[in-house]
Amino acid sequence: MGFWEVTNSLLSGFRSTCLMFALTLLIALPLGLIISFGSMSKFAPLRLLVKTFVWIIRGVPLMLQIMIVFYVPGLMGVSVLPRFSAVIIAFSVNYACYFSEIFRGGIESISRSQYEAGQVLGMTKTQVFFRVILLQVIKRITAPMSNEVITLVKDTALARVIMVEEILKTAENIMTKGIIWPLFYTGVFYLLFVGVLTLLFGCAEKKMSYFRT
């Protein structure tokens, strides 16, 4: 296999990597926000439930979670999920829990007086949150979020424990033909992807540098 041929087949694996990344973010970001509200709830039983859930998800290896989502329904006699969906569910829930803690930290770091300033102006709690608090939170959590998002790029490689195609798996397939260098070549794809993300996060930080919190 020549360089271009390898590049081409790696690209098809990379497409799957990107798709997993994008779908996971799309689900995990709003889900994380909802979980963070749960973990800040004034209703103690809900708060406890959510916190326990976050503890479990953060305490168990992601690889194991992927296997649980894929294999356990079958063991219980329920219909098995498609491999790709199982991966997306495991990733989304796992990352949502990590995000939720970042969101919670961000939200709780905004001083109460910002809420009060909005309230005395007759704003509803929802208005205060979305019009006053949220952007300040986003600004504060950009750096920790960039960490998580970059980790996600590389965690997609875990999908291959249930035989989902992604770039590393593609390289392994090529390896069975006795060519080993494509495995190391995948590193370039990851690096480029993470490079683009780093630039995007840099842009976002710059965009929000017009105000200080």
Binding site: S113, A117, G118, V120, L121, M123, L135, Q136
Partner: peptide, 26 residues
């Protein structure tokens, strides 16, 4: 609440809005 206005000791303006927008937002 709208019967009352409150000016705080440490202002508590909304940092992401301009002076004008701070005034008009509510």
């Amino acid at each position: 609440r709208l019967h009352f206005g409150l000016v705080f000791q440490s202002f508590h303006l909304f940092p992401q809005y301009t002076a004008l927008k701070n005034i008009t937002l509510a």
